[in-house]
Simulated scan of single mutants.
Amino acid sequence: MATTFRRGWRTKAEPVLLKCNDGGEYVVKGQQAGRQIVNDQITARIGFAIGAPVGEPKIVEVSAELIAIEPRLSHIPSGTAHATLFIPDCRDDCGLIATSEPENRSRFALLAVLYGWVYANDIQFIFKKNPPRLVYSVDHGHFFPGGPNWTERDLIQAPQAELNSYLCENCNFTPDEISSALRELESVSEATIIQAVAAPPSEWGLTLDERVTLVEYLTRQQQQLLTFL
């Protein structure tokens, strides 16, 4: 349950930073963001499953009472919202930096796998301000074929899965780095994929048929990527 407003960001989805009753602070997107929060939640969950550097996903409740006393939450409907644990002391950077940091090599390799698995659009990174400048991937609302407007047809007709070319070209991964990341993907069970797709609450508008198609899509993409082992 969200208890305290901390700050907001002036981006299209208008996320906010909220403190919750577990003591943690979370970057929260409300249901006004539409299908973006479905994409965000599922991508964060499967990214977390392979150990990729993404925010830890949660679903939080934003009460009507909190919205009533905090005008800066007026754009967020009451109810459940997508959230990821806030990662402090980071800088926003849309460019690819710190690829030479040894600690980031495996992190970027895992992201190359995650991005190829889900199908990445509008890639966004943040980096820790101090060395080692650890990379994190954030804001996955436009992932999946078709972005936030994807349909079942988009998923069914998606092209063959490939490792993310942008990261592969810029990071020049070794075969061992890619193999290690793919082994993490291989360890993800169908049950884990099902749990990730089941996570978005029904009020987010994801139908049963769409969930089934998502599971089939992610399972197919996983198997296609594993041919690179």
Rank of each mutant, 00 (worst) to 15 (best):
A81C: 15
A33I: 01
G24F: 00
E65S: 15
N39W: 08
V60H: 05
T11K: 05
T11L: 14
G8P: 05
D22E: 05
V28G: 00
Q32K: 09
G24N: 11
L66Q: 12
G51P: 14
G23M: 04
E25S: 11
Q41N: 14
E70C: 15
V27D: 02
Q32M: 11
I76W: 05
I42Y: 06
E25Y: 03
E14S: 01
S74D: 07
R45G: 02
G55W: 00
C20L: 05
H75L: 07
D40S: 07
E61P: 05
A49E: 14
P77C: 04
E65W: 09
I42P: 10
G55D: 07
A52S: 13
P15T: 03
G23S: 09
I42F: 07
A44V: 06
G23R: 09
I50C: 01
L73V: 13
I42N: 06
E56H: 15
A44W: 05
G34A: 08
F48D: 13
P15W: 01
S78C: 11
T80Q: 09
E61Q: 10
R35K: 14
P71L: 03
V27L: 09
N39T: 12
R72V: 08
K29H: 02
Y26F: 08
P53W: 04
R45F: 02
I46K: 09
E70S: 13
E61C: 01
V16R: 03
T80N: 05
P71W: 06
V16E: 05
